[in-house]
Design a protein around this nucleic acid. Structure first.
Lengths: 328, 328
DNA sequence: TTGAAAGCGATACCAG
DNA sequence: CTGGTATCGCTTTCAA
């Protein structure tokens, strides 16, 4: 088995051609102040003409830093992933970092494997959003031991051992409730996702308590794990038009709701729809819907910046065990 | 500046502890037939207890293979990217490969930079979908010279120098046209994306020629680069209900159409909507819409498999310059 | 201002 | 079956 790729020009090659040492070439290439500008010129020219490209493997190996971070997500959804990727790329690429995407497919076991993978491939840091199955952070402890900077985002668990970035679920649910109240809705149907999720619970509690402050409102609540389930349930539920206000806690639940409303031609009747949403998609659904936006792009950038910060701290030897929770 | 990460157990550490050579340890760990099972046992046990993890940097460096591939896409869209990522992950992860996502943000310059980045980081292969600005493959020639296996997918250019994977645009547009014809539509509006794109042109030509076989059909065509533009144009155009058939060449154009139909409560009147679609989203829009599916997941798996195949060929020294175009 | 040389950690060839 | 050793390409002291 031969080499995977054609042999490339190395530092040594340049050194031999110019009859100087590799150390000098190395330093010249990175504008080290010790090197005379004459030599720098020569070296850079040669590097240019011979198409020299530093071998990142060797550099990483030597420096023990991969400039790679691992992104572990519970699943690849169309609502959240694209915006979060954009956000993360925008800050990481600027700093010369790359990232892998590893999807846990909603399996705790896969999540654990991915964490091992990240450790093995020597990532400089990890951004992770936990699966629905993940109940604690035990499997993350190793990361702490190995001092691998890690930020948890979006889906977290209560006993959090890392810095994390989440949306302000309380506030958003509250604002949605207020919109429905202001609209004068009296018969509200609220649609939530997976009942076991932290994010569902916090939105639920907040939404309910806001609505309950207006005693004349009649509130029904359903939980559905997928857009399809929402649709199925609603197709049965919506047999009268008495509901004048809908709340969807996410894009996914909103999609199911929209689908069902369309089917029953209820979309333009006298009812209000408000939702918590990532915001990319819903603008095309119906102009009358109102949203409280959870901006995935913003979360991505924020989390990435936090991670880079703690990578730098690690590198400089500071060892504060940050576990702050940032709400955005 | 100290090491980024805590020192980990190395082969040498194990060798010293067991008082044997590193070569033996290395071989034992990978079940080399030469090694006695007694030694293997000992070594593996030690590796286990001391939490030995091979240093991928060193391995890659030595073997000149990164087990990383670069995925370059023109933009991060919610319609295509999630499914393509899922498809690619599903085959690459199984084979121990990872991939970076690099988005060109529809800029030819950025695309070129990303290609450089991939070369620098010594990826084992590249999966690339070109931007709208990309008119030829000159910037890809370097990849050919350097013998970096590359597959172009979805967005290609006519003078293609690499193997590529595309959807069967001709067939799909044709089938959509037939659906509208079968439905008896007489006044059709067809919505296309960016007029300059290869994929737009092939869908356009095919769709038009199919429709034109039925002389009594009146066909109007519009081109819009984004869902928003579709909506804006339609909000002006749709002042009467005479259109009884719509064709959208993509999810993006379909979203604009849907939005506009909803707004005018035209969604449940007597008209047919057919579209070429990635398929993830549209099932929630309106049950009466019909689709010709371009499956991003399938494209992802297919492209990834092709890439792995050519990586293996490269490795074994076979040098067929494949430029086959696969339609799926 | 420059060079020599020591590794980083794993692999593989050649001996024994 | 096992050990010694060169090597991958680069960075980084230490010496000159």
């Amino acid at each position: 088995m031969r080499q995977l790729q054609m042999r490339r020009t190395t530092l040594k090659d340049l050194a031999e051609m110019l009859q100087i040492s590799t150390s000098t070439v190395s330093r010249a290439l990175k504008d080290h102040p010790d090197i005379s500008s004459a030599v720098k010129m020569k070296v850079k020219e040669a590097a240019e003409t011979f198409n020299y490209v530093p071998n990142d493997f060797a550099v990483n190996f030597r420096k023990k830093s991969s400039k790679v971070i691992g992104l572990i997500v519970p699943e690849i959804t169309m609502f959240f992933i694209p915006s979060i990727i954009k956000g993360i790329s925008s800050v990481l690429n600027k700093e010369g970092y790359h990232f892998f995407i590893l999807s846990s497919n909603d399996s705790f076991e896969t999540e654990k494997e991915h964490i091992e993978t990240c450790i093995n491939s020597r990532v400089d840091g990890i951004l992770i959003s936990l699966t629905n199955e993940t109940k604690d952070c035990d499997h993350l402890k190793k990361l702490k031991e190995m001092e691998i900077p890690t930020i948890i985002f979006d889906k977290t668990v209560p006993q959090n051992i890392f810095e994390s970035v989440i949306f302000d679920n309380i506030k958003n649910a509250e604002l949605c409730a207020e919109k429905l109240i202001d609209q004068g809705c009296k018969n509200i149907l609220a649609i939530f996702g997976d009942e076991n999720l932290e994010i569902t619970q916090s939105r639920l509690i907040s939404f309910k308590s806001s609505i309950n402050q207006v005693p004349e409102i009649n509130l029904s609540i359903i939980f559905c794990k997928s857009a399809n389930l929402v649709k199925e349930k609603l197709d049965l539920l919506l047999d009268d038009d008495s509901i004048d206000g809908f709340f969807a806690m996410s894009d996914e639940t909103l999609m199911g709701l929209h689908s069902s409303l369309i089917k029953r031609s209820l979309n333009n009747t006298n009812r209000k729809v408000v939702a918590i949403s990532e915001g990319t998609l819903p603008k095309y659904l119906d102009e009358t819907y109102e949203y409280q936006i959870n901006d995935g792009y913003e979360m991505g950038t924020f989390a990435a910046i936090q991670l880079l910060t703690s990578i730098k701290k690690e590198a400089s030897g500071t060892h504060e065990t940050e576990t702050a929770i940032h709400q955005i």
